[in-house]
Amino acid sequence: MERLSQSFYRLLLAAYPAEFRQEYEREMLLVFRDLCREHRQSGLGLVRVWMRALLDLAQSAPRERLQNFRKGFDPLKTLKTITLALIIYAAVVIIGGKLLVSGRAHLPYALGAMLDSLMMIGIAFNFIALVLMTTKLLRPVKAVRAACIAVVFLLAAVLAFLPAEARPNGVAVTTMVLSLLFWFGAHRLWAQRREAALS
């Protein structure tokens, strides 16, 4: 029972920021183990240990998360980065859109659809990943994963609300999946390098 408790407590420690866990997880588990032993000896049982641990977790994990979020967070710099990114995105959308509209007439359908989806998915993917990283909500690799999941949900939501006749055909869906994989792969490679450089 104690082992199970300790395994479950280890899982709950995911509520703390990764850097905090890296530094103190081992010791927190030792302390939790000692608390379990102490209460077994005094006959008070695990319920009291768990009440104490859960209350502590509910108080301290949000505090550590908030502090981690604030660390090195510069609101003005973040606002500037996001504004600059929005301007660049707007320029890409306008210029890319114009080029695609004029070029589509001369391109084979599959190639045109691929360029369309690369651009549209790229805009959504890059924007979500950028917001998550500049606000330091998640570490780079996790931010890329979260951006991918968000785009998949976004696409699924759009497709669900489209009328049947407007739904994309097999070629379009394939190009969307390939585009998503392209952006995910490119970002993941970059994020892994960034995390390696940070550690």
Partner: peptide, 13 residues
């Protein structure tokens, strides 16, 4: 006063 592991190591940090 009963410190929990999270409060203890948050303060220690």
């Amino acid at each position: 006063v009963r410190l929990g592991p999270g409060t203890l190591y948050g303060s220690v940090k």
